[in-house]
Structure formats: structure tokens, C-alpha cells
Amino acid sequence: MAVEPTHEAARSTAQAVAHHGAQAVQEAAHGGDAIPELPNLVTVLHHRLQDAPWVTWLHQWENIVFAAFVGVLLALLAWRTTRHPATIPRGWQNLLEVFVEGIDGMVHGMAGRHGRTFTPFVATIFVYIWLMNLSVVVPFLKSSTSSINTTVALALVVFSYVQYTGLRTLGVRGYLDHLAGSPRDLVGWLLVPLMLPIHLLGELIKPMSLSMRLAFNVFAEDVLLAVLVGLGIGLSLTVQLPPWAPVPLQLFVMPLVLIFSTVQALVFSLLSTVYLSLMLPHEEHH
């Protein structure tokens, strides 16, 4: 009996996915260097077409590819939603308005009357990180935020925007005064040699803490999912189930992944807002 090509291709792909996951988990269990990782579209392609240069390029830039996918998805959603805005919102517009209003309220509450200026930035940061975090639960996608390169890039953008905001709102003199600890008396001026390095160090540590917190949390989630998927495959092989029908052990931690993904995106956005509000004139602080 002839097997249809599409069924054959699907079975081959499933076997490749199962093989990749099981191999990664097995290597990790035997003390190998490989870190368990869920297969995605790029890794599957790379497994099947290792010699193709474009696949190698995709594999090298897979974090950018999945981040770009999320970005394009967001841009299309934004364009479609606000193309014909209605006075009485429905559907996606309603959802986006609730989201924007929530972010705007949060930013306004933390940064005062300057909050509206920061709302687009914070909203973009939140929704971009959130969707990238959640990508791991979609089959054949990957969380780009599990890569330190992605989170460092985002943290550097936040750092740059924070410093630009400080220079713009305080002026060069006010910005240097802020870094020096705003000395107003003799004791304050005497403490400048101590406060200036501390503030400079603090400003530099902020993007590091932002990027590492996000990357390691998301990476840990991804590894946990990959391990559970590998265990499910191993369990199915033990009880002699077909490799394309593994036991879905990862479903038990999916709710936790959803919660942690949201919390990590929120923490990154909140801290970015705090850093921005700290660069405002002091009477604006709440």
C-alpha cells in the first residue's frame, strides 16, 4: 500500500523532532554539554537539511528570526486594529485599548504627568517580551528571550532611553548633578567622590540585571519544558508507544510557564518605568 507523501513527510518530521528532543535529554542525563532544548522550525530544518547554507544561516540567527516573527505579528495586528478605529471598540481594538489603558495607568501612576511620554515605549517592551516569552508554548516556535543576546539588546535600548530621558529632562548639568548624588551642602560635596562611582556603577548594573533576570528565567522555563518533553518521549518509548505520540508531561507546567512569562515581561516593563521615572526631576517622583 502506497503511503501518501504528506503523511510520510509528517511522520519523518515528527520522528526528527522526537529524536532531537530525546537526544538532547539523553546527552544532558549522561553529563554531556548539550542543554535540553525544544525543537523548533529552524532546528528541524537544520536537522533535515544540514548542508543547505540558508538553513545554516537561519540556525545561526534563529533568535532574530523568531523575534522578527513576533515583531511582524505585532505590527500586522496593530495595523489591522487601528486601520479603521471605531468609537465603540470591538474585538481586537477593545483588547488593545484595555491593554494600552492599563499600561498607561501604570506608567502614569509611577512617572506622574510625564508618564504619557513613556507609555508607547513601555507598552512595546511589555507586549514584545510577553509574546516572545509565550512563543515557547507554540509548537515549532522558540522564545527569543531565552537568549542573552536578545535580552541584552533590550536592556541596552532601555539603558539608552533612560540616559537620553535624563539628559533631556534634567539637562547636562542636572544629569551630572543627579549622578553626583545631588549635593547641596558641604557634606554632600564631600561625598561626591563616593556617590559618583556608586551611581555610575548602578546605572551600568541596571541593564545587566534586567537582561540576566529575563534571559535566565525564560531559559529555565524552556529547559524545564524540554526536559519534560524528553521524559515524555522516553516514557512513550519505554511503554512502546510510537515516537510521534509521546506522553505530554509538559502540559502540567504549561500554566506555570504562562504565569512566569507574563510576570517576567511585567517585571522588565515595571523596572524600565522605574528607571525612567528616577531620571525625572525629583518633584515628579511618586
Binding site: 523575534a67 487601528t82 478605529p85 488593545l96 504619557r116 507598552a123 512595546t124 535600548v157
Partner: peptide, 28 residues
Amino acid sequence: QILSQAIAFVVLLVILRRFAWTPLLRML
């Protein structure tokens, strides 16, 4: 990759600011 990600985010920020956040905030 860091530079690419940063540029991608800035481009996304400009697009969303132009097509999503500003119109929605104005409408609100």
C-alpha cells in the same frame, strides 16, 4: 545579534508607536 535585536526592537517601537499606541491613546 545584539545590534540586530536592538535595531529590530527600535523599528518595532516606531511602527507600534505610529500605528497602535498613539492612535489608541488619542482615541482613549
